[in-house]
Design a protein around this nucleic acid. Structure first.
Lengths: 225, 225
DNA sequence: TCTTTTATTATAGTAATACTATCAATAAAA
DNA sequence: TTTTATTGATAGTATTACTATAATAAAAGA
């Protein structure tokens, strides 16, 4: 089975839809490679243009600046995650299994084959872990938020919160718990890799460790309310 | 009672100790004001120099770059937090009370009067919330970590983890839980302020809300192992 | 006291970044 | 065939992140 997924990304994140042209697609794909390789701070439109054999002016016609481009990538990711969640939770009735699936989804890498999506998933995953908070931890967050570009994140969070409430309707903080699960899955993996003394990882796989920690946290919190 | 606290900050974070001169002290104090006001991305050494009525070259003699300056501020904060923790936990025997004190410390603002410390504490608090993760979420983290500049953070985390283990020796993830408490206290407050749909805050005080959420999470996790 | 050394600014300059503006080439629509 | 719109190439500017060197002041030695 092979299928294509595409999302209606908020038009506020781009000036011209990168999906509408070959250069646009290459731009996003190469951006993922470069941001992974250089880190967001050292990533520039000039370097991206060189990689795609075009000019800076072209890149600026698609995205207002590199922050918006990162936002585009994250919007794509959040949408994809919500899709995967919906898909994987289909016909699952046991709410406990639902929660376990969610934790798996948050900690394991994106599935390799998913139609036309030819982004490097390992890189994308690492970007999500290391760079995603940079789109909202900025002075302009209030202004940016008005254009609804964080809606996919809020929706993903909301969907997880629904399952949490389904599992334990009495629990008071379903949304905060969901955003905590998402964020914690990122930086615990980051810490395992780079600052392991901030974790209890014993040098094994950071994804397995993080899944174990989150699962323990989640069920202990929800099983005793 | 009035007392002075000072820490031996790792010499790797500065080129010349800012505490050793008047300009140095003004530099750090004004940096806190400016980073709060502009956000770390828009904060530059040129603007800082103008604020202190000196030149860029002078600033560069104290700190290698603005990243190191932020690291200096955070090192100061982490050290101060560990000191406060030690201080406030003095003679407390009930480990439950100890944990509650820790959550208070992580969510409430820094105490106003603490000797010579004349940094703007409201600003410093906001910087901790919005900017602190930017010191480690960078490509160079491995290299930076070698100079031990994250030790104060690790020590703080370790100290909290000790109390966690004291409260429940069987719990498997004391360090990860501690770093999660610290990080979650930051971004839940941030979310309450700017992206409230990622939380369950009902518009009340974000600090009280975050404390409530964290306390619920912590004790449910530790009371049932 | 005067001179020499050293330290510390101030001035100036460079390479890179983050954009903008202009203009020509090309392609699609009328 | 002309008009219109879309591209991409070229060039240019303001700001950022530094570096290098000259000027000045403070400290130390003769």
């Amino acid at each position: 089975m092979d299928f294509q997924v595409s999302f209606n990304l908020n038009e506020k994140v781009f000036l011209r839809d990168p999906e509408s042209s070959e250069v646009g697609k290459k731009l996003v794909k190469s951006a993922i490679d470069l941001i992974y390789e250089l880190g967001f701070e050292h990533f520039t439109f000039k370097k991206l243009a060189a990689e795609v054999n075009t000019t800076e002016a072209t890149v600026y016609r698609y995205f207002e600046n590199k922050h918006r481009l990162l936002l585009y990538i994250l919007n794509w990711y959040w949408n994809y995650m919500e899709f995967l969640l919906e898909f994987r939770l289909q016909n699952v009735t046991d709410t406990r299994v639902k929660l376990q699936t969610i934790i798996e989804l948050l900690t394991q890498e994106l599935p390799e084959s998913s139609g036309k999506m030819d982004y490097n998933k390992r890189y994308l995953n690492q970007i999500i872990i290391s760079e995603s908070s940079k789109v909202y931890l900025v002075k302009e967050v209030k202004e940016i938020n008005k254009s609804e570009v964080f809606k996919p994140y809020k929706d993903l969070c909301g969907k997880i919160a629904e399952v949490v409430s389904e599992y334990n309707p009495a629990y008071q903080f379903p949304r905060s718990l969901s955003s905590t699960l998402i964020e914690t899955s990122h930086y615990q993996q980051f810490f395992c890799n780079y600052l392991p003394r901030l974790t209890d990882s014993k040098g094994g796989d950071q994804k397995t460790f993080t899944a174990g920690f989150l699962s323990d946290l989640l069920f202990k919190t929800l099983d005793h309310s």
